[in-house]
Simulated scan of single mutants.
Amino acid sequence: MSTGRELEQMAILEKRVTQLIASYHEVRESLDQARYVIHNLQSIIDAKDEEIKNFQNRDNISKIVNTIAAEPAHSTELKLKINEYIREIDKCIAYLRD
């Protein structure tokens, strides 16, 4: 008789272990998905930080140009030239990152 009861307990234990393994796999999958989302969000944050930095640099350059050039024609020309240099530098930085 005890063998039947032991088999029943083993079956219950096996069922619980199977449930635990299934739960583990679900949690593991959720964790992997969360890590993927975090990685993507971090990439977006990094890109936005870079954009903000570029805008701040352009604003600083505009301020510098306005202080250096008194005439509006020279100011515009200087801004364009500096922006061209900045674009070239950004291209170089992007090239170096790759």
Rank of each mutant, 00 (worst) to 15 (best):
residue 1 M to C: 04
residue 2 S to G: 11
residue 4 G to P: 01
residue 5 R to G: 01
residue 5 R to A: 13
residue 8 E to M: 13
residue 10 M to D: 11
residue 12 I to E: 15
residue 13 L to E: 10
residue 13 L to D: 04
residue 14 E to T: 14
residue 15 K to S: 03
residue 16 R to F: 08
residue 20 L to W: 09
residue 21 I to Y: 04
residue 22 A to G: 04
residue 23 S to N: 15
residue 25 H to E: 14
residue 26 E to W: 01
residue 28 R to M: 14
residue 29 E to D: 14
residue 29 E to L: 12
residue 29 E to S: 12
residue 30 S to T: 03
residue 32 D to P: 00
residue 34 A to W: 00
residue 34 A to Y: 00
residue 34 A to T: 04
residue 37 V to A: 06
residue 39 H to E: 09
residue 42 Q to F: 07
residue 43 S to R: 10
residue 43 S to W: 00
residue 43 S to K: 10
residue 44 I to H: 09
residue 46 D to K: 06
residue 47 A to Y: 09
residue 48 K to Y: 08
residue 48 K to C: 00
residue 49 D to V: 00
residue 51 E to S: 05
residue 52 I to E: 02
residue 54 N to D: 12
residue 56 Q to S: 11
residue 56 Q to L: 12
residue 60 N to V: 02
residue 61 I to N: 01
residue 62 S to K: 03
residue 62 S to C: 09
residue 63 K to G: 01
residue 65 V to L: 06
residue 67 T to Q: 11
residue 68 I to D: 00
residue 68 I to V: 15
residue 69 A to V: 08
residue 73 A to L: 15
residue 74 H to F: 15
residue 74 H to V: 15
residue 75 S to V: 06
residue 75 S to C: 14
residue 76 T to I: 13
residue 76 T to Y: 10
residue 76 T to E: 14
residue 78 L to D: 02
residue 79 K to P: 02
residue 79 K to A: 05
residue 80 L to V: 07
residue 80 L to S: 12
residue 82 I to D: 04
residue 83 N to G: 07
residue 84 E to F: 07
residue 86 I to K: 03
residue 89 I to Y: 07
residue 89 I to N: 04
residue 89 I to T: 07
residue 90 D to S: 02
residue 91 K to Q: 12
residue 93 I to D: 02
residue 93 I to R: 01
residue 94 A to T: 11
residue 96 L to C: 11
residue 97 R to G: 02
